[in-house]
Design a protein around this nucleic acid. Structure first.
Lengths: 102, 102
DNA sequence: CCGTTACATTATAATAATATAATATAAAAA
DNA sequence: TTTTTATATTATATTATTATAATGTAACGG
C-alpha cells in the first residue's frame, strides 16, 4: 500500500520553503530576481533598474545570498550577482507564467 | 520586432503577487494550503491537522479568504474552506515539486 | 597620494507580523 | 432553555521587517 506522504514532505520542508518564499514576497526582491532571471547584474545596474537605494539593494542582495537564492562573484571593482538555484529559477518562471500575463 | 516585456509584467503585478507570496510564506499558512490541495476542510479539521490554535487558524483563514486564496461555504454549523484559485493550485504544486522531494 | 566609484556595514526609527488570551456569536444538542 | 460546539472578533505584547541615513572599505584612475 502506497501512502500519500506529500503533506509530510511539505511539513518537513515547510520552514525552509517559507524562508525562500518570504524572501520572494517583497516587491523589490521579486523584481531583482526577475531581472536576474535574464542575466547576471552588478549592484549598480540593479539599483538603476529597480530605482532603489544602494543601501537597500546591498542589504537585500546580501540577505538573498545568505539564503542561497543568489550568488556573487567579483569582477574588478564590481560585484556581479546571479540566480544561484535552479529550483528558484523554475519557481520564478512559474510565478511569472501564472501571475504576470495579460 | 518583439520586445521582451516580462520584466514590465512582473513590475506591474509585483505588488499583487507579493501579497500572495507573503501569504504563502508562513509555515502554518503554507501547511494549511497543502492540506487544502487534497480537499476541502473545516476549520476544526485544519486546527487538528496543523496543531494550531483555533484563533490563529481562524485569523489566517480569514486573511487568506480576504486575499482570494481560499473560499468558504457554510455546511450546517461548519465552515468549509477550499482553495479558491487555479493559479494558486499550480503554484503550490510547483513549490511541492521543487522543494518537497527527497 | 588623493579623490572617486562601487559596494558593504551599522544604527535606528517606523511599521508590520505573530502568538496569545479573552470575549462574542450562532447553530445544534440535550 | 441551557449547554456545547464551531467559529469569529478584539486586544495586546512580542518580535521581525523595513526604510533611511551615515559611515566604512576596497579598488582604481589620475
Amino acid at each position: 500500500m502506497r501512502r500519500d506522504v506529500s503533506i509530510n514532505k511539505i511539513e518537513n520542508s515547510c520552514d525552509e520553503v517559507c524562508l525562500i518564499l518570504k524572501s520572494l514576497s517583497h516587491p523589490l526582491r521579486l523584481l531583482v530576481l526577475g531581472h536576474l532571471l535574464k542575466g547576471s547584474k552588478t549592484v549598480g545596474e540593479l539599483v538603476g533598474l529597480c530605482e532603489a537605494s544602494q543601501s537597500q539593494m546591498s542589504q537585500f542582495l546580501i540577505r538573498m545570498k545568505f539564503e542561497g537564492l543568489v550568488s556573487s562573484e567579483k569582477d574588478g571593482k564590481f560585484q556581479v550577482y546571479s540566480l544561484a538555484d535552479k529550483r528558484l529559477i523554475r519557481l520564478i518562471k512559474t510565478i511569472q507564467d501564472e501571475y504576470c500575463r495579460g
